[in-house]
Design a protein around this nucleic acid. Structure first.
Length: 485
RNA sequence: GGGCGGGUCACCUAGAGGCCGGGUGGUGGACUGCAGAUCCACAUACGCGGGUUCAAAUCCCGCCCCGCCCUCCA
């Protein structure tokens, strides 16, 4: 039984989707005015894993993630660059999706853009005005927070506490400081759309209420996002949608914890923002994903050199196990009668590891605990491998089970392209142009001969030189395996 | 000030009233020409001060420290 922590109730609840076998998931996407940073990556990896586990459990997941392409920061940045804001943000949206793709995140089913749903937003705002939840003020429209009795429930704050913290700007058209904009009249030079109230643009929160309900219906199952969005963004989304539709908006609210850098908040003013591209370049996407998965998604994570190094080393062990099984795997129907006692016991152990894995993931997607199962699997596999060469079909079965689990955590993906790229890079570095692979094989042949003749000096120097080039050799008896490090 | 989540072995993370958490790194052993990989073993722990309890890292109280949110940041 899957349990998820619902921010709305502040406790773990059994997860029951509205429609049998189908999960409708909406996650707040990015405001695209610069490249994605590792904080974005953390959030989207977290929800990617959640999505993958739901699919692992047999649910069909319909995943919508919006793109905010209308926003103050976009306008400002575009103006500075002398570009059209929509064009400007479209460019970054493309780059961000590319980055997420490179990170290994499964694409959402759709990425609706705010700018393409202006009419839907106007309609919702009209309804809110008609129903008395919103008021028009001199070309702007505001949501009247006091009209919505449940306001503050998600962030667990009382209205007067919110009031105390709310800012009111000089000359504001708002009646109450806690009210928020649904529609804003455009200032000269700003992008604008025609509406019943003015030429202007929608407030930020309305797009998510509109696009999520449009594509997923109301209510839908899961709404996610970074914990920083709980207030006011998600609070406002609830207010708008529930006021508009007169019913519950979302059943489960899930929030991912924030990412810190060396114990500090990541922010432009501190100057410690690390872009996803930069991080992938340095650590590789799989190490990053392992790093993210090694934290529970709700806990704050701390990005540091040491932690990433740990992740890198740990991951290597899992990779090697996978490689070893791949070499032994044979296709075919596995029947118990052809297994000996040791193999039978290994087979049984896999089953119990899988159970542990599922139990961990069922407990609000406890990925660090789930990773324990992966290491348990590695240990058990290595144990049997060191004693004998197990049945090939059994290895195939084990490999599949291992991959299934790892796949949920977005680990041990088929990354042939990355490997090929690495080889190409090595080749270029040494001016070998696409021949790196055959040269490595040749060197290994030479080394093998040297070892036979006990010319260890030569053998070791070949090994050392290859290591310098990023190729690691591993002797197993007479044979030698190589891998890129 | 208000809301929320934290402080666990050298490092990174789970967990949760009693027994074994996992990974990285370290040490010793087995294996190996060596290295690596692998297995086995070992060590180091629960912010501080009180309390509850036969028993607390886990519950309660106080304190210290850290992070996030409090109008447009994932």
């Amino acid at each position: 039984m899957l349990k998820v922590y619902n921010t709305l109730t502040r406790q773990k609840e059994p997860f029951i989707p509205l429609e049998d076998g189908i999960v409708k998931l909406y996650v707040c996407g990015m405001t695209t005015y610069s490249d994605a940073h590792i904080g974005h990556a953390r959030t989207y990896v977290a929800f990617d894993i959640i999505r993958r586990y739901l699919e692992y459990k047999g649910y069909q997941v319909f995943y919508v993630q919006n793109i905010t392409d209308i926003d103050n920061k976009i306008i400002k940045a575009a103006n500075e660059a002398g570009m059209d804001p929509l064009e400007y943000s479209a460019n970054y949206a493309k780059r961000c999706l590319e980055d997420m793709n490179r990170l290994g995140i499964k694409p959402a089913n759709m990425y609706p853009k705010a700018s393409e749903h202006i009419n839907d937003m106007i309609k919702m705002i009209e309804t809110l005005v008609k129903k008395g939840f919103a008021y028009v003020s001199n070309g702007d429209v505001y949501f009247s927070v006091e009209k919505f009795k449940d306001y503050g429930r998600l962030s667990n704050q009382k209205l007067d506490e919110i009031k105390a913290g709310a800012r009111i700007e000089v000359g504001d058209k708002k009646k109450k400081p806690e009210d928020f904009a649904l529609w804003k009249e455009a200032k000269p030079g700003e992008p604008k759309w025609k509406s019943p109230w003015s030429y202007g643009r929608p407030g930020w929160h309305i797009e998510c209420s509109v696009m999520s309900s449009k594509y997923l219906g109301v209510p839908f199952d899961i709404h996610g996002g970074g914990a920083d969005l709980i207030f006011p963004h998600h609070e406002n989304e609830i207010a708008q949608a529930e006021a508009c539709y007169g019913k519950r908006f979302v059943n489960y609210w899930l929030h991912s914890g924030m990412l810190k850098v060396r114990g500090e908040k990541m922010s432009k003013s501190i100057g410690n923002v690390i872009s996803l591209r930069e991080a992938m370049e340095k650590w590789g996407s799989e190490t990053l994903r392992f790093f993210f998965a090694s934290y529970h998604y709700r806990s704050p994570a701390d990005f540091s050199e040491e932690a990433l190094k740990n992740a890198e080393n740990a991951l290597k062990r899992l990779r090697i196990v996978k490689e070893n099984l791949e070499e032994l795997a044979e296709d075919g129907e596995l029947s118990e009668s052809e297994l000996d006692e040791m193999e039978k016991s290994y087979f049984k152990t896999i089953g119990s590891i899988k159970k542990d894995f599922e139990q961990a993931m069922d407990d609000d997607f406890n990925t660090p605990k789930a990773i324990e199962s992966l290491f348990e699997f590695a240990k058990e596999t290595n144990k049997i491998l060191m004693k004998k060469k197990p049945n090939g079909k059994l290895c195939k079965y084990a490999l599949n089970e291992f991959k299934k689990m790892a796949n949920v955590l977005t680990l041990l993906q088929e990354e042939k392209s990355i490997e090929e790229e690495a080889i190409k890079k090595i080749g270029e570095k040494y001016g070998l142009r696409g021949q790196a692979e055959s040269i490595i094989e040749k060197l290994i042949e030479i080394r093998k001969k040297a070892r036979k003749e006990k010319n260890y000096k030569l053998a070791d120097s070949i090994r050392d030189e290859l290591k310098k080039a990023g190729i690691e050799l591993e002797d197993i008896g007479e044979d030698t395996k190589w891998r890129i490090i």
